[in-house]
Structure formats: structure tokens, C-alpha cells
Design a protein around this nucleic acid. Sequence first.
DNA 1: CTTTATAATTAAGTTTGCTTAAATATAAAG
DNA 2: CTTTATATTTAAGCAAACTTAATTATAAAG
Lengths: 164, 164
Amino acid sequence: MENLLAESLHQWMRVIMRHSMHNFMRFAKENNFSMAQINALFRISHKGACGVSDLGDELGITSAAASQLLEKLVQQGLVQRSEDPQDRRNKRIVLTEQGNRILQDSIQARQGWLNQLAALFTPAEQEQLHQALQLLIEKSKLLGEDDADLTGFRTLMDLQKKSL
Amino acid sequence: MENLLAESLHQWMRVIMRHSMHNFMRFAKENNFSMAQINALFRISHKGACGVSDLGDELGITSAAASQLLEKLVQQGLVQRSEDPQDRRNKRIVLTEQGNRILQDSIQARQGWLNQLAALFTPAEQEQLHQALQLLIEKSKLLGEDDADLTGFRTLMDLQKKSL
DNA sequence: CTTTATAATTAAGTTTGCTTAAATATAAAG
DNA sequence: CTTTATATTTAAGCAAACTTAATTATAAAG
């Protein structure tokens, strides 16, 4: 790795993944949610009120699939689906209070350990780390969500093609 | 939130997830891997040589399911499955060179943006952030992987039960 | 008004990822 | 040796999450 900070960031990411994913998946399983469903709750929460096709695009599935997914979430009382009064072809999708609670619980399941971690530091260290993280968070806002093709897709797809 | 650092950590986690997950899932989809498969590659890489049932436990599935999952990975040339000479009931599961390459590519897809982020800082900032992250990584080692029930499962399950 | 376009849903069928139960092979114990 | 236990695989079947195609409802354009 060319860059010391980049290396640290990658290392930290591995730590996060190892600690978080197991609990998160256990949470999903024990409460009978699919990853797709929880993912949908996240996206709905993040986008605010949005339409069915929008959500499908967001999740990378067809609008038909999104509609079906939503139907279940509505039946479970996690999502409210109402007509858009402006254009009645559209639906407005929002989380119910309960849906938001489930989302929060899933976040807690995934990152509850961060609270324990934070408690391990002295107040001075906490202050220093807090500032460092704020710096990272600030700069992250300059980055778009999609990395076009800096991600190594091409090489992999070539590789796959040859191996088939 | 009671703690400033904990709050920053949660916030930073949200940033990481938002940036990483979309690219990661797109990677999986475009290259025709399921999450289960990539997850398996991770676990195999992390545990080193291990048996089929071990892997199943790790992934939270039956050994039959693990066997089937592995069969596909073997056919794709990503995993090598050989007899354990010590106890020939056991299989030794290891990544092939190609399997490891796919794993690395998937990591790149997920965290390639971290390189861009790192490049946004001055050398002095990079040094400061590097040290902060190393502090976090160090302390993380003191934490177990499972959080027992600090994760809020109980409250959620009660809630679910009532709503059914 | 009639046509065309758009948003969501429904229907039908496929694939995937699991499960349990049965089969196979090896090891360990009596 | 025979029995019992363990590790993996195979077989059969099920449920979830998609897909495409058809349907319904509304909006916008001619």
C-alpha cells in the first residue's frame, strides 16, 4: 500500500466488518428479516418519502420486485404507503414509527460494540479521536457515492470471462 | 447519545456503510456472486484451512448447505477442497489463487473509495489520522466478537411478538 | 375525447439458498 | 470384528426474492 493513512483506513474497515456483520446477520435472522428488507428500511429512511420505482432503482431491482417487497413491509406495519396527492400514479413511501424503531434496533445490533469501544478511552483520548473522526466525516462529504470504475470491476470481469 | 466519541464513531460508521455497500453489492451482482458466496470466501480466508461443518457454523447454516455452497465455489475454481490426511472424514478448505484474487477485488470494490479519501488530506493530517486510527484498532482487540445481549435483541423480539 | 406515456401492481414462472433425511466413508470404542 | 460416532455429501422439497409480461389507474399530449 502506497499510503499510510489509506492502510490504516483499510485496517480499521476490516475491524469494523468483523465486529459488526455477525451480530447484524444474527439480528436479521432471529427477527425474520431478510437483508433485502433491512436494506430497504435503510434506503427509505435515507431518501425520505419516495416512490416505488425510485426505491427499486436504489436497491437495484425492478419496480415489480420493489412493489412486492414493500407489500410485505406494509403488512408488517413497518412502512406506510399512501397516494401522492400531486400525481396519483405515484405512491409515497415512508417508515412508520415502528419501522423506524426496527431500523434503530438493527443499527444498535450492528454497532452497539462501538459504545463499549468508546468507553475504553480516557477523556483526553476521546476528545482527540472525536476530532479526528469529524475530520474524516467532513472530507467524506466531498466524495460521490459511486466510484465509477476505480473499483476494479473491469479486471475482474475479464478474468471471469476467461475462466468460463 | 451519552458520549461524544461514541456519537462520532456511529456517524463515521454510517458514512462507511453508505459509501461501501452500494459498490459492494453492485460488484457481487455484476460478477454473479451471491452475498453468501463472498461471505464464505471471507470466512475461509480468515479462518485459514478449515472443515465444512466449521464453515457452516461460521456462516450460520447447516453443514449440508455449506457443502452445497462449497461445491459451487470449487466448480468456479475459487476454492480447493482436499482430504485431511490426518482424519480422512474431514476436508481441508482453502482459497485458490483465483479465489483470493476475487476476494481482493471484492475488497477493492468495497473500500476503494478509502484511497481517494486518504488522498484528500495534507501529510500532517494524514499522520494525525493514522495515529488516531491505530489507537482505535489497538483498543478494538480488547473487545470480544460477540456482544451477547447488549445489542437490543430482547426488546425487539418482544415488540415483534406483540405485533403478530 | 382519444392516444400515448408513466407508475404501480398482479400473475406466473425461475433460481437460489436453505432445510431435513438418507447415504457414504472413516474413525474410535467396546 | 462390531458398534457407535463423526464428517461430508446427496436427494427431495420448500420458501424467498427475483424476473418478465400483463393489468389497472392516472396524467399528459395531440
